[in-house]
Design a protein around this nucleic acid. Structure first.
Lengths: 195, 195
DNA sequence: CGTCTATTTGAATGTACTCAAAAGCGGTGG
DNA sequence: CCACCGCTTTTGAGTACATTCAAATAGACG
């Protein structure tokens, strides 16, 4: 059956009856995203939040000097959007691209707002999702402040092994806030240390 | 009247009737916190979430080498806790200290869980609070990844002017992820640049 | 197979840190 | 009310971590 993984994701946190579930599913639109194509571009209005059914996406910020900072990777079972711009209906600060052919469900802001009213349990679901996201980002801030690039890399690989082997090192480097060259050096140094 | 500012904070997001409000208030415990005393210590169980009525608090992570990383400052109208440990009922990673004599309301985890059930609007309130917290931390991650210490300092002062003039530079430095010495240099350099 | 991009390597540079010492400031007790 | 103590801030020299730029190598994809 279709929608399997998103239903499972929702059921982890709330219990919906048949009608509620159908109403929810009716608000989703399935989208195939080709590798390298964008589901959100910096400057565009960010209307949707996405749930990743399969594949992998990357959300990044493009700075003045053309430097990319990877904000998050989203693989199977992750929700992703430019939250600030989604909530405030502002032009996106982030760009979101598919790193592989992906399948996502998109949910429109107005539909989500509607869900909150019609099925208040969605408040709970998103309360929990936002809470997890907050905790995750706060932990990342702490790591950025207190650890060296080398330590952060080790933690990243350990925490997201599936992501680490899917994405380019360049992209991991931009997630860690270092250059691709320096990450290369770190890895190489580590290999030498083991000898 | 008592509880003024927390009622106002809650009312910004949800509407409670008389009974609901009274029930909520009955779960709060007002606490006076002396300057320099701790409301949470690393390693202790984190049972409460706090709302700041007045004063100023600082949450920080104490690393291996004794290095402090300031995770957040909480002034009037802010909610603060070690969210990860509060939610998961784990020993705290963070320490929270008062930087000035403060007045806070504490809310126990079990009471909050109870509120979610008895007054589902609290799901909405905390959904919004978590959402804001997530957005804030994500923005901070982006800044940490893409900007220099000097730029981050300028943004901090601009974004939180009340905080910037209340707290020690050392503490701002630990929020920015730089040493007190280097922050001193940045400020001094800026002063010279203006000449 | 050829082209384009990612990764590696190295040298020179810059940003931020460490350590140490001096100066400034705030609170507290005599 | 002033003097002293402790902590914060400043200053500077030397160092370490991370960047930039450039060029060579390796990989991926059409």
């Amino acid at each position: 059956m279709d929608h399997q993984s998103i239903i499972k994701n929702v059921n982890r946190h709330i219990v919906l009856n048949e009608n509620e579930l159908l109403f929810f599913l009716s608000r989703l639109k399935k989208k195939k995203i080709d590798r390298k194509s964008l589901i959100l571009t910096q400057g565009q209005l960010c209307e949707y939040i996405y749930f990743v059914e399969s594949g992998a996406l990357r959300a990044f910020y493009l700075g003045e000097a053309g430097k990319e900072s990877t904000v998050m990777f989203a693989v199977k079972d992750w929700w992703v959007t430019d939250m600030y711009c989604f909530i405030n209906e502002k032009p996106a600060m982030l760009t979101i691209e598919a790193i592989e052919d992906s399948l996502v469900y998109q949910l429109k802001k107005s539909d989500l707002d509607d869900l909150y009213v019609k099925i208040p349990q969605f408040e709970r679901l998103f309360r929990v999702l936002m809470q997890n996201a907050y905790i995750r980002e706060q932990l990342r801030v702490i790591e950025n402040l207190s650890l060296s690039a080398e330590e952060r890399y080790a933690i990243f690989v350990n925490k997201y092994p599936e992501v680490a082997h899917k994405v380019k090192q360049k992209q991991i480097a931009s997630y860690l806030g270092i250059t691709a060259e320096f990450l290369s050096m770190i890895k190489n140094k580590k290999a030498k240390d083991l000898k």
